[in-house]
Amino acid sequence: MDIGLILQLVKANLGMNTSIRDIYLTKLIEGIITELTEEKGIALDGSNSYHLMFVVDYAVWRFLSKDSDAGMPEHLRYRLKNLYIHAGGGASV
């Protein structure tokens, strides 16, 4: 996946126009990609806009909720379940 593109989209979603948090956001994005591929077993396709936008939305949520005890929003849980289904299922969310 194109980390640079994801970073730009995350920053656009958050309304950030400086690079002050780029290192943090980049590591957050890399961690999410690793979590989805290695821990959850989902094969992400960088050319699939659905996969790309899920990573963007997941990163935005993780950034905004870093100090919150609230669980994952329903729309993200639903989309994650769809990724499992299309990847062959197996793991539960």
Rank of each mutant, 00 (worst) to 15 (best):
D2I: 00
D2V: 00
I3T: 15
G4Q: 11
L5V: 03
L5Q: 10
I6S: 05
I6P: 09
I6Q: 01
L7P: 08
L7G: 01
L7Q: 07
Q8I: 01
Q8H: 06
V10R: 03
V10P: 05
V10M: 03
K11N: 11
A12E: 14
A12D: 15
M16D: 03
N17K: 14
N17L: 05
T18S: 15
S19P: 00
S19G: 14
R21S: 07
Y24F: 14
Y24I: 02
L25H: 07
T26P: 05
L28D: 02
L28E: 08
I29R: 06
I29V: 04
I29M: 05
I29C: 04
E30H: 03
E30C: 01
G31N: 15
I32D: 07
I32T: 09
I33S: 04
E35R: 10
L36I: 11
L36M: 15
T37D: 00
T37H: 04
E39R: 13
E39H: 12
E39W: 03
G41Q: 09
G41W: 06
G41E: 10
G41S: 10
G41F: 10
I42G: 03
A43H: 15
A43D: 15
A43M: 13
L44I: 12
D45V: 08
D45A: 03
D45K: 05
D45H: 05
G46N: 08
G46V: 03
N48L: 01
S49R: 14
S49E: 14
Y50K: 13
Y50W: 07
Y50Q: 09
Y50R: 12
H51E: 03
H51D: 15
L52F: 12
L52Q: 13
L52E: 10
M53A: 00
F54C: 02
Y58Q: 08
Y58W: 14
A59M: 02
V60R: 10
V60L: 05
W61E: 12
R62V: 07
R62C: 08
F63H: 15
F63Q: 11
L64Y: 07
L64D: 11
S65L: 00
K66P: 00
K66S: 14
D67T: 14
D67K: 15
D67Y: 15
D67R: 15
S68H: 08
S68W: 04
S68K: 12
S68Y: 04
S68I: 02
S68G: 01
D69M: 03
D69C: 00
G71D: 12
G71A: 06
M72I: 13
M72D: 01
P73V: 12
H75I: 01
L76G: 06
R77C: 08
R77S: 13
Y78N: 08
R79P: 01
R79C: 02
R79M: 04
L80I: 06
L80E: 12
L80P: 11
L80D: 02
K81G: 07
L83R: 07
L83S: 03
L83Q: 07
Y84P: 09
Y84E: 06
Y84A: 01
I85L: 13
G88S: 07
G88H: 10
G90M: 04
A91I: 13
A91K: 14
S92N: 08
V93M: 11
